[in-house]
Nucleic acid binder design. Structure first.
Lengths: 300, 300
DNA sequence: AACTCCGTTGCAATTTTTGCAGCGCAGCGG
DNA sequence: CCGCTGCGCTGCAAAAATTGCAACGGAGTT
C-alpha cells in the first residue's frame, strides 16, 4: 500500500539498524530515506530514533510507535479480509505458529481440508517453541498459535484446549511393545531419546523423574522429533512424544503407547490467539475448524 | 499528518456526499480528489464508494474501512499522548460527552483543577443525551462520557458509578421549602417544570408517577435545565434535577431538596469509555481524577 | 594518522500530484 | 422534445514533491 510506505521505511531502518543499509533494502538512496524519516519525526512531533555513531536505534517513543504501526497494519489486512468475505469470495492469509508435533499429520490434513473449501486462502506455518509462539502473537507475526504447554499465558487467549498424555515411542519388536500398562520405570531401563529442554514433553518427563528422585540421562537429545522417532529404530531406545504427532500404521516398525498417567502427567495442547485481537475472517474460521478437529480427538 | 491525507480526503467525501463538494472543503480540484479516491480503491482492492447520479456514498466495504480509519487515528493520537507523557510534558486533548447537569459546576471545576496541574492539556466538552453519548464513544469522537442513566450499556465500559437522587428545585419562599421530608405528591400539587422525555430525570419521574397511577402534566417542558431552574422563580413551580448540577448558596432565591427515595428511585451517574479502548494518557488521568471527585461526593 | 561507516545537506533531475478544460451521463423542468 | 444542472471521470500541461548525486563533518577503529 502506497500510503503505508513511510511505515515500511521506518521498519526497514529498524531491521537494518542504519539508514544506509536500509536504503539498499528499499531501493532508495540514503539521503531520500533519511529525509523521509526526518519528515515523519517532524510531523509526529518527536524523534523516534536514537542517532548512534554506528547507526540508528528506536528510542522508547519509537518502540511505542512501532507497536501501533504493527497492530494497525494487521488490522487493515483484517478489514480487507472482511471485505473479501463480504464480497462472497473468501480470501486471505492465515499464519500459524505451532509446535513441531503438529507438522507431520494434524496441520497438513487440516490445512488441506480448509483449502479444499476455500482455495483463495493461503497459509504460512511457522515452527515455534512455547516461548517464541507467544512472542509471535504479540508482534502480530502470527494470527494463531497451536502449542503444547505454553509458558506465560499473559496476552494469550485460549480458543481451545486438548489434554495430551505423553507417549513413549519404541520398536514394535522391542521389550516395551509387550507391556500393556506402560510405566515410567520400564522406559528408563532403555536408552532415552529425548527432546531438548525447551520442549513441553521434556519438561513433563523431568518433572516426573525428579519426583521419583531419578535423573534423566538421554542417550540422544535433539530438537527434532523426527530424528528421535527414527533413532529409536536403530538402537532399541525409547523416545517420547504427544500422540497428535504420531500415527499407528500396522506395517510400521514403530509403535507407541501412553506412559501411565500415574507416572507422567499429561500436558495441554492449546490453540490460542493474542488476547483481545479481532482476527481476519479466514483465520477465525480456520481456528473454528481446528477447535472442532481437536474436540473430535478428545472423544476418541 | 501528511501520510493520513488520503484518509482525511475519504472522510471529506463521506461528509460532503460528493467529490465536487468535498473538493471545495479540502482546497483541491475535483479531478485531483477523484484520482486519489480511485488510486486508493485500486490499492485497497475493492471500491469503497457507490457511484450515484447525485454523488458518492459509502458501500458496506467502505463502512468497514471507515470504522478502521477512525479507530486507527484515535489510536495514533493516543500513542502521541503516551510519548508526550514519556517526555515529561503532559500534553494532549480530552474530549468528553456529558449530560447537561455537569455543565454549571462539576465539570468546569474539575477541568480547571486538571489544567492547573497540566496546562498543556486541552478539553472539548460536548453536551449529549444518554443515547448520543454512547454513539459518540463508539465513533471515537469522545474519549469519555459522563451521563445520567445511560441506555444501552453495550460497548460502554463503566469507570465509575455514582447514585444520584432526584432533587426538586423550588423557590426558597415557596410552600415546599418548609417541608422536611419531601414527598412526590407534595410536588405534584405545584406547576411542574420538567426536562424533555429524553432525559433520565424525566424517565425516573414518569416511572414513579405511573406506579402511583398519576400522569405528569408539565406546565413547562424544556431541554434546558437552566431554563427550568430560572422558570421556577417566576411561577411558584417546581423543577427537577440531580444534585451534582445544583449548588446551595444562602443568598440564592432558589432551594432544592431530594425527593423522598420512597417515591422516586435514584439514578446512576456513570463515567465510562468505549469498551476495550486504550485511552490517551491525558484522558485516562482525567478519568481517574473524575472518579475520585465522584467518590468524594458519594461520602458527603 | 589514515580509514571506515555513519547521518546529514545543497542542488539538480525526476517522478508524482494537481489544476484546467472538456467529455458523457442522468435526472429535472418546461 | 429540449436545455439545464450537477455528477464522476480523463488528457494534458503546470506545479510540487520526492529522489539521486556529490560532498561534509563527526565518531569510532586500525
Amino acid at each position: 500500500m502506497r500510503y503505508l510506505r513511510t511505515f515500511e521505511l521506518i521498519e526497514a531502518v529498524v531491521r537494518a539498524g542504519s539508514i544506509r543499509r536500509a536504503a539498499e533494502d528499499t531501493n532508495l538512496t540514503a539521503s531520500a530515506l533519511n529525509r523521509r524519516i526526518q519528515a515523519f519525526e517532524q510531523e509526529f512531533g518527536w524523534p523516534i530514533f536514537e542517532r548512534l555513531p554506528r547507526g540508528m536505534r528506536l528510542n522508547p517513543a519509537g518502540e511505542l510507535l512501532m507497536q501501533h504501526i504493527r497492530s494497525h497494519r494487521t488490522d487493515l489486512t483484517r478489514v480487507q479480509s472482511q471485505v473479501a468475505d463480504l464480497a462472497g469470495e473468501r480470501r486471505g492469509h492465515v499464519s500459524i505458529a505451532c509446535s513441531q508435533a503438529l507438522l507431520p499429520y494434524f496441520l497438513p490434513e487440516q490445512i488441506a481440508l480448509y483449502r479444499s473449501a476455500h482455495p483463495g486462502v493461503t497459509f504460512s506455518v511457522n515452527v515455534r517453541d512455547r516461548v517464541q509462539a507467544e512472542r509471535d502473537l504479540a508482534s502480530f507475526s502470527s494470527d494463531l498459535a497451536l502449542v503444547f504447554e505454553p509458558v506465560h499465558l499473559v496476552e494469550f487467549e485460549v480458543l481451545h484446549a486438548l489434554e495430551q498424555p505423553v507417549h513413549a515411542v519404541f520398536r514394535r519388536d522391542g521389550a516395551l511393545a509387550r507391556r500393556s500398562d506402560l510405566r515410567l520405570r520400564d522406559c528408563l531401563n532403555h536408552a532415552l531419546a529425548l527432546p531438548a529442554q525447551a520442549y513441553g514433553v521434556r519438561r513433563l518427563l523431568e518433572l516426573a523423574a525428579t519426583r521419583r528422585g531419578r535423573a534423566l540421562t538421554p542417550a540422544v537429545e535433539s530438537e527434532s522429533f523426527e530424528l528421535i522417532r527414527h533413532y529409536v529404530l536403530h538402537e532399541d531406545a525409547v523416545g517420547f512424544q504427544i500422540p497428535i504427532g504420531l500415527k499407528l500404521r500396522p506395517d510400521d516398525a514403530l509403535d507407541h503407547r501412553a506412559v501411565s498417567s500415574r507416572d507422567v502427567a499429561g500436558g495441554q495442547l492449546l490453540l490460542g490467539q493474542m488476547k483481545g485481537r479481532a482476527l481476519p475472517v479466514a483465520s477465525a474460521k480456520f481456528a473454528q475448524q481446528l477447535a472442532l478437529a481437536l474436540a473430535a480427538r478428545a472423544t476418541d
